Amino acid sequence: MIELSSRQLAAHTHLLGDCEPGPAALAEHVLSTGNGRALADRADHPRTLALDCAGHVLLRGDPDALGPTDLAPFAHRRVEAPARFLPALDVAFDRVVPSERMVYVRQQAAAAPRPPRGVTIRPLTSSDAPSLVRLPAESAWIHASWGGPSGLCRSGHAWGAFRQGRLLAIACTYFRGGAHEEIAVVAAPGRRHQRLALNCVLALDGDVAARGRTATLTCSRHDRPGRLLAWTAGFRLVREYVHYATGAYVAHGARVPV
């Protein structure tokens, strides 16, 4: 597959179909922010289009247009694709693991709890990048869709809970679509019971609504804390889907016997 410019991508978004609530907003995020990349089987009149951002891939079009090595860039990703792509994915990677996902959309009002004494809930600014860097390594994914800590802090799309300069929780727009903003949340270890993530989500939701969009939140079917957070914040389940975690690329589809 070849990488498309923003202008080329804008000309071929019809291949994506309707951008449903949830991570499908990553296509518009790539187009509007320049984070991530778009790939296609060819520049003119492409038959297959893929959007790749922050470890997530949105794959659409005709799988018969893909050659033996076209899926190689999508190793170790979470791929959302129609079922017709599954045979190609299965041949291309040493493992393809399905994961059930649940998409919640903000529909009801919710009251923000009073934050603990000494905690401030506020938008992140460019000066907060060091606080993001100091989060545990397993939380680094939170800023991946904006190109890193500085990109997220400059975006104006994140709220954090701070105490004495330390970032305790953060909610941010992960994929910014035209109608929906898919949000993501991280709370520092030991802080999840303080409901700081809820404060951040509700503050961020106010910004999303002011921009004329609707906030969405997606989590695993097995993520009970994530589902509870969504419900408490006034989000309601609107759809479910499956994405596929890919393993290592198998050269030319030739699997190594084990």
Results as ranks from 00 to 15, higher is better:
L229V: 05
S155R: 08
R84A: 15
F93L: 06
S220V: 00
A40H: 06
S126C: 06
G118W: 06
D223I: 01
L217V: 03
R106D: 05
S126D: 12
G151L: 06
S6D: 06
S220L: 15
C172Y: 01
A25P: 00
S139Y: 09
A81D: 02
S126A: 15
P98I: 06
S150H: 11
F235Q: 05
A210V: 01
G55M: 07
V30I: 15
A251Y: 09
R84D: 11
R221S: 14
V30Y: 03
R77K: 13
A184E: 08
H243D: 15
F162S: 06
V97W: 03
A210G: 06
R176F: 01
R60E: 10
L89A: 07
R122H: 07
L58C: 02
V201M: 11
P115I: 10
L71P: 01
E100N: 10
S127W: 09
S220T: 08
F175T: 01
R78H: 12
L152H: 04
G226V: 02
T246F: 10
R78P: 00
R37M: 08
R154C: 09
A65E: 02
H252K: 11
V258R: 14
E3I: 01
A65Y: 02
G160D: 07
A50D: 01
A83H: 09
G190A: 10
A254W: 05
T69P: 00
L66V: 01
D44V: 13
L31V: 01
R134K: 13
E182A: 13
A169E: 04
T125R: 14
A169T: 03
A129Q: 09
D52R: 06
P116S: 13
C219L: 10
R95Q: 12
R7M: 05
L202I: 05
W146I: 01
D41G: 05
T33H: 07
S220R: 15
T218P: 02
T125D: 13
V201N: 05
V91G: 02
D70F: 05
R134A: 15
A184M: 02
R166K: 12
G148I: 04
R95E: 12
F162T: 03
E3Q: 14
S5L: 08
G22Y: 04
H157F: 11
H193R: 15
H14T: 09
I121C: 07
T125P: 00
A43S: 13
P130N: 12
A179C: 09
E240Y: 01
R221F: 11
N35Y: 15
G226Q: 05
R255F: 09
Q108H: 13
R134M: 11
P98V: 06
Y104Q: 03
L135K: 03
I121N: 04
R176M: 11
V201D: 04
A38K: 06
L135Q: 09
M102L: 14
